[in-house]
């Protein structure tokens, strides 16, 4: 199911949560809505779900205008932030809920429902846990139940609100892979909300970055990481050293730091350099290394420029010994935006 969001606006009281948002999502895509808290990402997701109605604009599923259709009529599968499992029902009853509420000819037979529940439990690798209650499951297992409950109704679109927010790092990583696998297996158009850029970049086909109720940029993880269109995106997606300075004649200068800024107009500007884009260079900026922190195959280097500006460098573990005392570094790549 393709989804089109057209000029959607939503205010809560006088606070604008969504400000003229446009978004096109292709059939079968896995899209992340990424942004800090208060950026409007959850409101956008709930508007797509039919849990909020916009003040203006349109929501289209395929060619159909569903702007004011109920969540049930849209047939969305929604995974809530804290899962919202029905505490007093077994896992199987939870998953079957969306089928049990159907009436008349639409309602599958008991056997069909049981079969569907079994299939879904297998899909999320929870076979045999159907008779447990949610309180008897771990956080990760609850998340899987919520996912299969949302999938049980064979939704036209699967929506997840911070699906991994409440889990510890290890479980989170394995469930990310799980969601990707389930998405690939079912092919259902999937949109998830996250404030974790790593999660968005790793999991999604495309990432929409929201800030203050607007979509700042939408693109593949590569595009938003390597070609951020605004200082906000640059600072939010991936790590970056931030410098405030001026551009003059195609060159950005901030204290002792200076690098090329082709095509940026003269005047005040902000420059960003990703930690892994700083390399040793004899003609570069002189910095003093404070600390080297090795993590897996990489090493993070904390350094300080002559003017006291803190600089983060990422390098390979093998190269780490070369980063000590006074070194000279230069950016391989940088992003400069007029302030």
């Amino acid at each position: 199911m393709t989804i089109s969001i057209r000029s959607v606006e939503k205010k809560f009281g006088r606070y604008p949560a969504l400000n003229h948002v446009d978004l096109e999502i292709a059939d079968g895509e896995l899209v992340a809505l990424l942004g800090p808290s208060g950026s409007g990402k959850t409101t956008l997701l709930r508007t797509i779900a039919g849990l909020e109605f916009p003040d203006a604009g349109q929501v289209l599923f395929g060619a159909e205008d569903v702007t004011f259709a109920s969540a049930a009529a849209r047939r969305v599968g929604f995974v809530f932030q804290q899962y919202a499992l029905f505490k007093h029902m077994t896992v199987a009853k939870n998953i079957a809920f969306g089928l049990d509420v159907r009436k008349g000819a639409e309602k599958p037979s008991k056997a069909e429902i049981a079969k569907r529940v079994d299939d879904l439990l297998k899909l999320v690798e929870l076979d045999g846990l159907g008779s447990r209650y949610p309180s008897q499951l771990s956080g990760g297992q609850r998340q899987r139940v919520a996912l299969s409950r949302a999938l049980a109704v064979q939704p036209s679109v699967l929506l997840l609100d911070e699906p991994f927010g409440a889990l510890d790092a290890t479980v989170r990583r394995s469930l990310r892979k799980e969601l990707r696998r389930v998405h690939d297996a079912t092919g259902v158009t999937t949109i998830f909300v996250t404030h974790d850029q790593e999660e968005a970049l790793e999991l999604a086909d495309r990432v929409a970055i929201l800030n203050a109720g607007r979509i700042e940029q939408i693109g593949t993880p590569h595009e938003v990481h390597d070609n951020p269109v605004s200082p906000f995106v640059c600072g939010f997606v991936g790590e970056a050293n931030r410098f405030e300075g001026t551009v003059s004649g195609g060159r950005f200068t901030s204290g002792a730091v200076s690098f090329g800024a082709n095509g940026v107009r003269d005047g005040a500007a902000v420059g960003f350099v990703r930690p892994h884009d700083l390399v040793l260079d004899d003609g570069g900026l002189e910095v003093r290394v404070d600390r080297v922190h090795v993590q897996g195959a990489l090493a993070s280097v904390s350094a300080r420029a002559a003017d006291g500006h803190h600089i983060e460098i990422t390098t390979s573990r093998a190269d780490a010994p070369r980063f000590s005392g006074a070194i000279k570094v230069a950016p391989r790549m940088s992003h400069v935006y007029p302030a």
């Binding site: 779900a49 039919g50 849990l51 109920s70 969540a71 049930a72 969305v76 929604f78 809530f80 932030q81 804290q82 919202a84 499992l85 029905f86 505490k87 809920f97 969306g98 509420v101 159907r102 409950r149 109704v153």
Partner: peptide, 13 residues
Amino acid sequence: VSEEEAAVSMGAS
């Protein structure tokens, strides 16, 4: 209200 929202989103009256 999230349990209620979940129920309604799955078509419960």
